[in-house]
């Protein structure tokens, strides 16, 4: 554990909490892509199966349980409890275009051809693109509420901070995982356009609106 890894985890945690607070306080999931949230739930379920087979630390277990519970809870809030507020007309990204290629890629490019390892690899590949339905929705409507943009900023920062963690681990521990690094870079790059808008608009007190 190093400072970048911890900051990344906390940023990820903050993103999820911001999203849950937004939905709970406003009793609405307007502007949030249910499709991205379903993909994140799939990411956590396929990645954290090792909760049942291995123990790493109390921290690790607690975070995994929280990520699993909160992602499934978010899907429940969007598709059941606050279904009426879900903006499905704007949430039209075809997720099979993300699920199928990442599933195929995980079967071809993995560390070891075993069930656990392939599911882990699939979750890493899927996570890297899981935000696309959400970004597509923002670009379709041309705007995002401030709270939604804070959520996206925290979620994007998390993988960026992990990149610093991987650089640290490469230099000081001689450890690197090429699958996680490449996917993590792709994931962070997808947020770049959003980061630019967030810094130039939202931080100056303006609403996130895309140029017409």
């Amino acid at each position: 554990m190093n400072i970048f890894r911890l900051a990344g985890d906390l940023s990820h945690l903050a993103a999820i909490i911001i999203l849950l607070i937004k939905i709970w306080k406003t009793r609405s999931c307007a502007g949030i892509s249910g499709r991205s949230q379903v993909l994140f739930a799939i990411v956590f379920i396929t990645r954290y199966l090792d909760l049942f087979t291995n123990f790493i630390s109390a921290y690790n277990t607690a975070m995994k349980v929280f990520f699993l519970g909160s992602s499934i809870g978010t899907v429940y809030l969007m598709y059941l409890k606050f279904k009426a507020t879900y903006d499905h007309n704007h949430d039209t990204f075809r997720i099979e275009f993300l699920l199928l290629p990442t599933a195929l890629l995980s079967l071809v490019l993995n560390h070891e051809f075993s069930v656990m390892e392939i599911l882990w690899t699939f979750s890493i590949y899927l996570e890297s693109v899981a935000i696309l339905p959400q970004l597509f929705m923002v670009s379709k409507t041309g705007e995002a509420e401030s709270i939604t943009s804070h959520y996206l900023f925290a979620l994007g920062s998390y993988r960026g901070l992990y990149i610093l963690n991987w650089i640290y681990r490469y230099y000081f521990e001689g450890f690197y995982d090429i699958i996680a690094i490449v996917a993590g870079c792709v994931q962070t790059i997808l947020y770049c356009d959003f980061f630019y808008l967030y810094i130039t608009k939202v931080l100056k007190g303006k609403k996130l609106q895309l140029p017409a």
Partner: peptide, 10 residues
């Protein structure tokens, strides 16, 4: 190395 040692990150 086991699965969990390789994948100790979240």
């Amino acid at each position: 190395k086991s699965f969990s040692q390789e994948h100790d990150e979240l």
